[in-house]
Structure formats: structure tokens, C-alpha cells
């Protein structure tokens, strides 16, 4: 009992006492014992061995204790609240999925193929790709992303107010701050939103470029537009603005710190997709439909 000749065991290092131990068990086996992973026979063998060998018992205890510690420490982190934005987005996905289940879901199931998009994201994505081709880009958006920007995606969501067609007395400070983040202030963008057809682009002051990607209606029927603003000091953003009365309010702006000819990384487009799902975005409007709805709100 505990009589293994281990006087020459190095201190603190990896266990080297194994060879001198009559009951030779690998760390993996002892760990599996501590984790309750061994079959009955091997479990019994280890149990008998640790009863007569303190060194083995210590090694098992180490594996048991590290698991306990890890669980305790990591469980303490579970109290971190889920960001309201994430919670809402997932609830939006659930809601969209529930309502779209009979259509997209069913067809995808029938094909036994890829997971269905709850909302017709495929249409939105196609429109995005098409928009880029119209603009003379070679290859898809998702394939021309330069490096080193995915890291710094700033997500500004729910700006809601403060982005008027014309600066109005009710432009709130909060909205202004949000706009400042994404650099979307000014009547020029509002005008572009009201006039530029999807697939076209327009130069803005300061070397920026506005690109209209698509128009659609959200769940509540509001007219919304997906657009990009690129070129301000190497920054680019993908955005959605919706029309409320005669005002365009930016609902989401995903900014990417793009270097030079930067494009939104896939992860920001995934965030955008998730957003579209969460607001129940309808299919992109056709060119005619878009023209019609934009004209109806003429000044």
C-alpha cells in the first residue's frame, strides 16, 4: 500500500512514476475512470488498483478535480445575460420559421436538400449578387472579400429614428449618434434612397459611393431598402433603411473596416440575413414595383 519506489520521481512534471507502478494504467484510462467512461470490468480493475495504490488514487483525484473545477468555473459564466439583440433575433428566426414552414420548409424537405431559409433569403442573396454583377463586379460578393476585416464588424441595430429626408426638428440626438457611427447622415443618402433604383449606384460627397441593392417590404408593410455605402476612409457598410411617412430610418447598419476596395465579409451578410429574417422581410420588389412605391412617396 503506497509502497511504490518513487524516490526519483521528478517534481511537478508529467507523471513519470508509471513505470514503477505495479498496476500500470495510462492517464487516459484513469481519466476515463474518473469520468465514468469505463466498462464494468475495467472500472472494477481500476477501482481495486487505486484502493491499494495512493499514487494511482492521486492521479485519479487530479482528473476528477479538474473536471469539477472546470465545470464550476464555466457554469459561473452562464449567468451572463443573453444580449437582448441576440434574443430578439433568434425569436424572430423562430417566428419567421413558424410562418414560413409550410412553404420553403416543405419544399426543402421534399428535396431532402439544404436547410430552407425561413424567409426568402435566397431571393435577397440573389439580388445582392445580381446587383454586384450589374455594377460590373467580377465574381460574387462573397468571393471578393479582402482580408483582415471580419474581425471588426460593428453592428448598429435598431437606430429607428432621427434620419429624416430633410433634417427635421424631431431628429433626435440618439438617432444622430447612431448615424454618426455608420456615417449615414445627410440628405444625400436620403435622396439616393428615394431615387436610385436597385442595381444602380451614385457617387456621394467625400468620395463615397451609394449602391442600392434591393427594395422589399417588412412584416408591417413598410418599404425598406438594402444599400451599401463604401469608400469613406476605407470603410464600407451594408444597411437597411425603411420608410416611415416621408422619412427614411436606418434600421440596421453593419459596418466593416474594409481596407481600400473593401466589401462586406460573409459574416456581416449573415448578420444582415438574420436581420431580414427577424423583420419578416418579403421578397425583393421587382424594378417596376420598386419604381411605383418610391414614386408614391414623392415630395
Amino acid at each position: 500500500m503506497g509502497d511504490t519506489p518513487t524516490g526519483d520521481t521528478p517534481k511537478g512534471g508529467k507523471p513519470m512514476d508509471r513505470m514503477a507502478t505495479p498496476d500500470d494504467f495510462s492517464d487516459e484510462i484513469l481519466m476515463a475512470y474518473a469520468d465514468g467512461e469505463l466498462d464494468e470490468a475495467r472500472h472494477a480493475a481500476v477501482e481495486a488498483a487505486i484502493a491499494r495504490d495512493d499514487v494511482l488514487a492521486d492521479r485519479v483525484a487530479m482528473f476528477a478535480e479538474t473536471a469539477d473545477r472546470a465545470k464550476q468555473a464555466m457554469d459561473a459564466t452562464l449567468s451572463a445575460p443573453v444580449p437582448a439583440q441576440l434574443q430578439r433575433a433568434v425569436e424572430g428566426l423562430i417566428a419567421a420559421q413558424a410562418s414560413g414552414q409550410d412553404t420553403e420548409q416543405a419544399s426543402a424537405d421534399a428535396k431532402g436538400g439544404a436547410p430552407a431559409d425561413p424567409v426568402s433569403l435566397a431571393d435577397h442573396r440573389a439580388r445582392r449578387e445580381a446587383g454586384r454583377r450589374d455594377l460590373g463586379r467580377s465574381g460574387g460578393w462573397r468571393r471578393v472579400v479582402p482580408g483582415a476585416m471580419a474581425a471588426s464588424i460593428a453592428l448598429v441595430i435598431g437606430l429607428g429614428v432621427g434620419y429624416g429626408l430633410r433634417p427635421g426638428p424631431d431628429s433626435t440626438g440618439a438617432g444622430g449618434a447612431g448615424m454618426a457611427v455608420s456615417g449615414l447622415t445627410g440628405p444625400a443618402i436620403a435622396a439616393a434612397l428615394a431615387e436610385i433604383p436597385s442595381g444602380a449606384e451614385q457617387a456621394l460627397a467625400g468620395g463615397r459611393t451609394f449602391r442600392a441593392i434591393a427594395s422589399f417590404r417588412d412584416e408591417a408593410g413598410a418599404v425598406c431598402r438594402e444599400f451599401e455605402v463604401a469608400g469613406e476612409a476605407g470603410r464600407a457598410s451594408v444597411n437597411v433603411a425603411c420608410r416611415d411617412a416621408d422619412r427614411w430610418a436606418v434600421r440596421i447598419s453593419i459596418a466593416t473596416a474594409a481596407g481600400g476596395a473593401g466589401y462586406a465579409p460573409a459574416s456581416s451578410l449573415e448578420a444582415l440575413d438574420a436581420y431580414l429574417v427577424s423583420v419578416g422581410a418579403g421578397a425583393p420588389l421587382s424594378a417596376q414595383e420598386e419604381k411605383a412605391v418610391l414614386e408614391t412617396a414623392g415630395p
Binding site: 503506497g2 511504490t4 518513487t6 524516490g7 520521481t9 517534481k11 511537478g12 512534471g13 508529467k14 507523471p15 512514476d17 495512493d54 499514487v55 492521486d58 492521479r59 487530479m62 482528473f63 478535480e65 479538474t66 473545477r69 472546470a70
Partner: peptide, 13 residues
Amino acid sequence: LGAAVGIDPPGPR
């Protein structure tokens, strides 16, 4: 993990 948090490395009693 055991070494880092001072759970004694297995050794002779």
C-alpha cells in the same frame, strides 16, 4: 489545468 490551478501533479505521497 491541474498544474495551472495548483492541483498537485500526481506524485508520491
